[in-house]
Design a protein around this nucleic acid. Structure first.
Lengths: 120, 120
DNA sequence: GGTATGAGCAACCAAGAGGTTGCCTATCAC
DNA sequence: GTGATAGGCAACCTCTTGGTTGCTCATACC
């Protein structure tokens, strides 16, 4: 069963590969739509730093910005997460399958000692 | 239903956030245990570059090295992939749930027109 | 109107990442 | 033994990244 799953966008992983951004994702998951200033306080960093992180997340399409008056609200856009989860799970499963085949092959080459009548 | 899922190790995402390393993962998924030299040829980079990438993957426990004679074979160690998939799927699901709650709330505030006998 | 607040833009900086070359060690094959 | 092959280590280089400060623009409030 050759995998049909296409390779995911590395930018999504890269975007998730930073603790600050991971925390932003968690925050947005909990609280929904928040403007940059709100997302900034509590963290020890500047608003501009947060803005950069958000733009990385936006580039990976993990987050969507909508302007409301003078503020910009960020919300999670979880489609990439879904794709990433599917890929990771597929790789995991496929690897298990390969190991099983390898196992079967090795068993055939070196049948285990003491098997009992025909399986024990 | 507050998420019990703990935050995943950012190093796993960071390790996956590079096209070269993603390709290495794919290669190992397909072909199983391979030494560095084999993993290197075909790619346009040096053996040392590949070694660095593999050490990043190993630090994230995505890959395991076993020495066989003079060569070192790398194999996928997919447990982190499983965890990552679970987290991503959980965030996806929780976000959908939050959106649904928001939706219900909005419906309650602005009941849709034409609801039937006693709503209109 | 004037003032406070939310956000964007640009320059800058230090540290890290991805890559290289050069050299050394260990194992295999003969 | 000799030579070829697999790999490790260290120094170096350049580009990116995470962060800052300073300034400007736009919207809201009174």
């Amino acid at each position: 069963m050759p995998i049909t799953q296409s390779l995911p966008d590395p930018r999504v992983f890269a975007a998730l590969g930073d603790p600050t951004r991971l925390a932003l994702i968690e925050r947005l998951r909990r609280d929904g739509a928040l403007p940059i200033t709100r997302l900034t306080d509590g963290t020890g960093i500047t608003r501009q730093a947060t803005a950069k992180h958000l733009s990385v997340l936006a580039a990976a399409e993990l987050v969507r910005a909508t302007r409301v008056g003078r503020e910009v609200r960020y919300t999670l856009s979880p489609a990439p997460l879904h794709r990433v989860a599917a890929w990771a799970e597929a790789v995991f499963a496929e690897n298990e399958a390969r190991l099983d085949r390898l196992d079967a092959y090795l068993q055939a080459q070196h049948p285990p000692v003491q098997r009992g009548e025909n399986e024990r």
